[in-house]
Nucleic acid binder design. Structure first.
Length: 480
RNA sequence: GGCCCGGUCGCCUAGUGGACUAGGGCGCUUCCCUUUCAAGGAAGAGGUCAGGGGUUCGAAUCCCCUCCGGGCUACCA
């Protein structure tokens, strides 16, 4: 039988980078076994819904190259894939649980619950539901439930132990008496997470449950529900969290956390996937540059770490650089599109890109490095034209020689330009760097940038000469 | 507080009783290359494997205790 996995985000905001890692692992597991992947929207908390969240989940996942087979917009044999559209299913199952004696109606008001909690806290007791409604006779409770506001609660047995063999953590065990009579169906008729996951995972034929570690604590409640329905319990894997650099929950304080932000910040999806896969998993070999296909082939759930990892932006940046360098020039130009002004000439862009490819950490870095080709507004302090231990007059002389050599150079290409500037250095008896420094500043307005000779070539003879002469003027004035 | 999960260089990690004088990558330092910056190459610093007890001829690897960190403890997911 082929595997069926699901990822089940809540539409409560932007897609978090930590959830992406979980989704990635689900994806890899399903894909490497030729299984099916299901996207299910868990929107059972009506108060936390954020408009547009589903759109951003779709956008983020598509951008990352994560694919799935069944979902709200794709449809599938178990539609609908949005929990708020499946309410009758959960209500029916809640009633069944009551009928089986595995759950009960509870009529306690929120006020009573709050007061109960307050008293328990005052007495330093465990704060949990006191089972006040647990022993109302079923007939009476059923009758009241028709007219009164109520919830359905799980009837947790008094004793016993529950356990799973987690795919990443191994054996985990709980004493049943540490578990609360959890609400399963809320008074608004919506299920809580606990009821909804169990019902949907079963009904949708999910064969492996893989989710974040924050869910382990609720596993025993789920186990009780499975047991009450006599359903098979799928194997589970709980992936460790991705924490902030300080060991706390990864949040906005630590920088970007939403997939959309990384896209906006000019990261490559390949890099993000590669980096993320390696937080919590390692292949055991010394390779670490992996595409989605590589990962699908190599990733093994047995190798997933059980300890949490920390977010390391420096390392992400490194992977981003690696993936930028792997792109073809044409592809790089395409990826640069959103990060470069629309009116910049694409032919020029294409000519300079090979020379900045290995100088970028993110796609955003390109713009500043090559702006000099697309504007004639170059500014700098003329004093900076003069190399260390040289003087303004000498610098003017050197620049003059440069203009002489470049004026009739044919063809005006990098190799010839290089020879010309070398000749100048020789004539001046200067280090090459001393000749190149003022030229670079003159034509780019910056002290660092793409290789000089190629920069001059792409800039073209006329604009190059103009700028160098401009520099000579500026120096002359500053000097007189 | 209770219940769970975890703890190998600053960070990601390899390691599953002997090849470990604990390996790789990021970051850092130095050097080489060199027209700047990168990229690339080379070298280096950095770890009492959280601490303490065991078990064993032998432990990062198995057991116990302690400490530290994280998650959960809602009519949130």
């Amino acid at each position: 039988m082929s595997v069926r996995l699901r990822f089940a985000p809540s539409p409560t905001g932007e897609l978090h980078i930590g959830s992406v890692r979980t989704i990635l692992y689900n994806h890899l597991f399903a894909r490497q076994r030729g299984g099916r992947l299901i996207l299910r929207i868990e929107d059972t908390d009506q108060e936390r819904l954020v408009p547009g969240a589903v759109d951003s989940i779709y956008a983020g996942l598509h951008w990352l190259g994560i694919t799935w087979d069944e979902g709200p917009r794709e449809g599938g044999p178990h539609a609908p894939y949005v929990q708020s559209e499946r309410l009758p299913l959960y209500q029916k199952h809640a009633q069944e649980l009551v009928a089986k004696g595995a759950a009960y109606y509870c009529f306690c008001s929120k006020e009573r619950l709050a007061e109960l909690r307050r008293q328990q806290e005052a007495r330093h007791e465990l704060t949990r539901y006191d089972r006040h409604c647990r022993n109302i006779p079923v007939a009476e409770a059923t009758a009241r439930a028709k007219a009164e506001s109520h919830v359905v609660r799980l009837k947790v047995p008094d004793e016993g132990t529950l356990s799973i063999e987690d795919l990443v953590h191994g054996h985990i065990e709980w004493q049943v008496n540490t578990i609360e009579d959890q609400v399963l169906l809320k008074s608004d008729g919506f299920p809580t997470y606990h009821l909804a996951v169990v019902v949907d995972d079963h009904v949708m034929g999910i064969t492996h449950i893989m989710r974040g570690e924050e869910w382990v604590a609720s596993v025993p409640k789920h186990l009780l529900i499975y047991r009450a329905f006599s359903w098979d319990i799928p194997p589970m894997a709980h992936f460790p969290s991705v924490l902030g650099p300080d060991g706390k929950k990864l949040s906005k304080r630590h920088g970007a956390t939403a997939v959309a932000e990384f896209r906006k910040d000019a990261y490559l999806p390949e890099a993000l996937i590669n980096y993320l896969a390696l937080v919590g998993w390692a292949p055991g070999s010394e390779e670490e540059i992996f595409s989605m296909d590589d990962l699908t082939r190599l990733w093994k759930i047995e190798q997933v770490q059980s300890s949490p990892g920390k977010w390391d932006k420096e390392r992400l940046d490194f992977f981003n650089g690696v993936w930028i360098r792997r792109l073809s020039v044409d592809e790089l130009v395409r990826r640069l599109e959103p990060f470069v002004p629309a009116d910049w000439d694409r032919e020029t862009l294409k000519r300079i890109v090979p020379h900045i490819q290995e100088r970028m950490k993110t796609l955003k870095d390109a713009k500043d490095q090559i702006a000099f080709l697309f504007t004639d507004d170059i500014t700098y302090d003329p004093k900076d034209l003069v190399p260390a231990k040289r003087d303004p007059a000498g610098t003017v002389e050197a620049l003059a020689k440069v203009t002489v050599h470049l004026r009739y150079l044919e063809p005006f290409i990098a190799t010839r330009i290089e020879a010309a500037l070398k000749a100048v250095a020789e004539e001046m008896d200067w280090k090459q760097g001393d000749v190149n420094k003022p030229v670079r500043l003159a034509i780019t307005g910056r002290t660092i940038g793409p290789p000089l000779y190629e920069s001059l070539e792409v800039l073209g003879r006329d604009r190059s000469l103009q700028r160098i002469e401009g520099a000579m003027d500026a120096l002359g004035k500053a000097n007189s």
